[in-house]
Design a protein around this nucleic acid. Structure first.
Lengths: 164, 164
DNA sequence: CTACTTGCAAATCATTTGCAGATGA
DNA sequence: TCATCTGCAAATGATTTGCAAGTAG
């Protein structure tokens, strides 16, 4: 590799917690045990989750009263504000996913097992821009859900095509 | 015009109310004053609406107690089941739009004024099918929201580009 | 007639908020 | 120190449900 490593601010490598700390500081907010704990749990693995699932993971802390339901909700909202999480609504329920350090993507949603399968399409982005241009609309983001039945559930539902 | 009008079952011309009546009958349910009234109001014009907006339109009936909040909700759900309405969630609130007799489309969503601008794209449908094929996923539908700022609001927000 | 419907009031359910005590910078 | 946080309990707000009385077929 040639030595073309030029000036490059490595802000992307900031850990979610550091990034959050930075956000909090900029707002005069504090880095507390609870917020630390929640961020750590949330970014410990890549997955879609809702408040209940997160609470299930933190049940010990909740049981020990070192953490509470309202704090979970408050912190999730802050994480969205901070741009660390993306929030979406799925069947009346708020579902979150990593936004920070994670590439833009859309979802296939299996309405049988509720699985969310991620995919990315540049063509889709071009399509959004194109439509927007026609309407003189400024695109800030998009969300595509393709609903249907995932491979696994299809196999389960149609063991044989006898009755068709 | 040449006389090529061949056999053509005109089931599409069924009014929303008739279509609903048909659905109700198939379920052993009844065509009541309330359901009739709601369907009529809902299909009196093409627009997106939520339960509150619908209730505002029917406020006289509600005031006269010939109709109630629970009945509105119950009937809206039946209309979705019947395939007459499509339901989506927008900011925690259920929003409905005509599905029966109305072409498939997607939306530009202005996050400033909450306007929903409809558009249709065949390319998008092809894209969904293509992605689905790769994942061995059976597509039953899709929903694309392009969020951003509509032309009107952009003009209002940036009267001049002075500060840029 | 009689099962399906309705309006009412009360229940849900996820999420939010007021407040007094606890705590991070 | 002292403004920001937190847990608690209670409030919210949209939507749903149990039930006795009303009504469609």
């Amino acid at each position: 590799m040639p030595g073309d490593f030029s000036l490059r601010t490595v802000q992307v490598t900031l850990s979610p917690l550091d990034r959050f700390a930075q956000f909090l500081q900029s707002r005069g907010k504090r880095v507390t045990q609870q917020r630390r704990q929640i961020v750590e749990q949330v970014f410990s693995h890549h997955d879609h989750f809702d408040a209940d699932e997160l609470m299930a993971h933190l049940r010990d802390e909740l049981a020990a009263r070192r953490l509470s339901r309202p704090t979970i909700y408050r912190t999730l909202n802050e994480l969205v504000e901070a741009g660390l999480l993306r929030k979406m609504t799925l069947g009346g329920r708020s579902v979150f996913e990593h936004e920070y350090g994670y590439p833009q993507h859309d979802h296939l949603y299996c309405q049988v097992c509720n699985a969310l399968i991620e995919f990315h399409s540049q063509a889709l982005e071009r399509l959004c821009d194109q439509v927007a241009r026609q309407e003189d609309f400024e695109v800030l983001g998009h969300r595509l859900f393709v609903t249907g039945i995932c491979a696994k559930c299809r196999r389960r539902q149609k063991p044989s095509r006898a009755s068709d």
